[in-house]
Structure formats: C-alpha cells, structure tokens
Design a protein around this nucleic acid. Structure first.
Length: 264
DNA sequence: TTTTCGGTCGTTCGTTGTAA
DNA sequence: TTACAACGAACGACCGAAAA
C-alpha cells in the first residue's frame, strides 16, 4: 500500500502542482516551485538564499497555520513576492499595513486573475488576521535569523524551534505557530541552506496528513505539544523518507485523479 | 434581475482538562 | 509524565432572504 502510494506520487508529479520532484524523483521542496505562473511566464518560487524570500517562507508558514485551503497561503505569498512587499520595514509601517488590509479582497482577486498554473479549488481569500502575524515576523526578524544561525552553529535545532514556537501571534489571534514549523525546516533542508537539519524534523502532520495516515494505518500521536509534533514528524519521515509528508498530503488528490486506489 | 445582508455551518488550528 | 479527547477561537464558505 505504501509502495503504491509512493509510486503514484512519482508517476503524477507533473499533474499535481506541489509535487516538485526532479528526474531522480528527489523532492525539491514546496517553495522551490509553486507552479503558479505570472503573466510574463516567470514561475513563482522562493530562493531561500535571498533574505526577502526567506522572509516570505515564514509568512507562508504562518499564513498556512490557519484554517482554509492551502491556496490562500500560497497566493498570499505569491502576491507579496510579485509586488515586492517582502521587506520587514514595510511591515513596520502602520499605514502600509492598514492599506494592505483594506484592499485584501481586491488584491486576492487580482493575483488569482493574473496568474495561471494553479487553479484554486475555492475562492482565494487573504484572511484578515494574517497581517498581524506578518508584523510579528517583521518585528522579530533579526532574532529569528540569529536563532536559526545559532541553531545551525551548535547543530541543535531545538533552539530555533522552541523560539519560533514561543512567539505569540504567529497563529490566529495571539496564538502561536506550531504545526507548520516543520515546513520551514524542510524547505531550508531541501534547498540546501541548512542541510544538516534532520529529516525527522521536516514532516508536517496537518489535518490532511493525519487523515491520510489514519486511512493507511499509520499511527500518529495526538499533537498538542512541540514534543508530540516532532514525534509525529519522525514517524512520517520513517515511512516516506525524503518525500517527507508529501505522499500523505497528496493522498486524497491522488485518489480523485484515480492515480491511487485503496484495496477495500 | 442583480447585489447585499445575515445567519448557520464547516474547517483547522492551539489549548485545556482528565485519566492512565 | 504521558496520551488523548474535548473544547473554544477565529475565521471563511455557503445559502437563502431582502433590498436595490
């Protein structure tokens, strides 16, 4: 069953936007290529060597750390990238943020109409509460970078994880970000920025992934702490290795395509 | 007919409480 | 301590009714 799922992922890499595999079926990361294409033909992606794109990675993770379809977070990040709204100073300016919030619906409609590649399943919406989170990232940006570098130096990523998980307001309201922290680590690992990040830290056990795990009989702990989060991540990594959580995330989409059938 | 409004439902989190 | 279920927050999606 697991082998069939992995085979389905590899065989359908060109049909599903977020399955970014190279010729050797090596996973390149979600942000390597969003498969969202700008009118000038340029493809949306993040180059995490660049500071502004690294900033957007955190924005993506925080935006994704909320209810709603993943396309919302992806298009929000795409919008910020194409309009060059990825400098921390912009987000420390109240008027800039107010203006962004006031025009969020217009901007969401605009970016979807401009781009091709990914067809959102539902109407794309920029949630009004993500703006406060971008401000939190901007305010703490220098420390975030320091913690990341320190973690790499000491080869102890729990320093970075614990810090990020302690920041109020990266989730909805004053809540913290948790479930998408492994996404940040995975992208940094996949793009070779910090290759020493253990793969066990890199799998996201979100609702889609948990539901697929359950159907496949992969038992994950209930996630209500950093500890249980990374326990779940490690189990997924054990199962799918360098494909991380992608097979589980893609499970339902592959079934819809008829690319993967369950026996029962 | 088209647009706006209002209420309900669904979702995906993080947190809290409880029992093993 | 650890594991798990239940809860509540914070939205958006959806749909039908009312207004324009």
């Amino acid at each position: 069953m697991k082998k069939q799922l992995i085979a389905a992922v590899i065989n359908n890499k060109d049909r599903i936007s977020y399955i970014n595999l190279n010729e050797d079926a090596q996973y390149l990361g979600w942000t390597h290529d969003f498969n969202i294409i700008f009118p000038d033909g340029v493809k949306m992606g993040l180059d995490l060597n660049k500071e502004e794109d690294l900033f957007l990675l955190f924005v993506l993770a925080s935006a994704w750390s909320r209810t709603g379809q993943w396309e919302n977070a992806a298009f929000f990040t795409t919008y910020l990238k194409t309009r060059k709204k990825y400098h921390r100073n912009q987000w420390l300016d109240d008027d800039f943020v107010k203006n962004e919030m006031a025009e969020k619906d217009k901007n969401a409609a605009w970016i979807v109409s401009e781009c091709s590649g990914v067809v959102p399943r539902k109407k794309v919406c920029f949630r009004k509460d993500i703006y406060a989170s971008v401000i939190v990232i901007a305010k703490n940006w220098n420390i975030i970078k320091e913690k990341l570098e320190l973690a790499e130096c000491l080869n102890d990523y729990s320093l970075f994880i614990d810090y990020l998980a302690s920041l109020d307001g990266l989730g909805t309201g004053q809540k913290r970000m948790r479930i998408k922290i492994p996404l940040i680590l995975r992208e940094l690992r996949c793009q070779g920025i910090y290759p020493s990040i253990p793969g066990e830290f890199c799998c996201v056990p979100d609702e889609r992934v948990k539901a697929a795990s359950k159907e496949l009989g992969i038992v994950l702990p209930t996630i209500n702490s950093i500890d249980s989060l990374f326990k779940a991540s490690a189990i997924i990594y054990q199962q799918f290795g360098e494909l991380y959580d992608i097979p589980l995330f893609a499970y339902k989409d592959l079934q819809v395509f008829g690319a993967f059938k369950t026996d029962n």
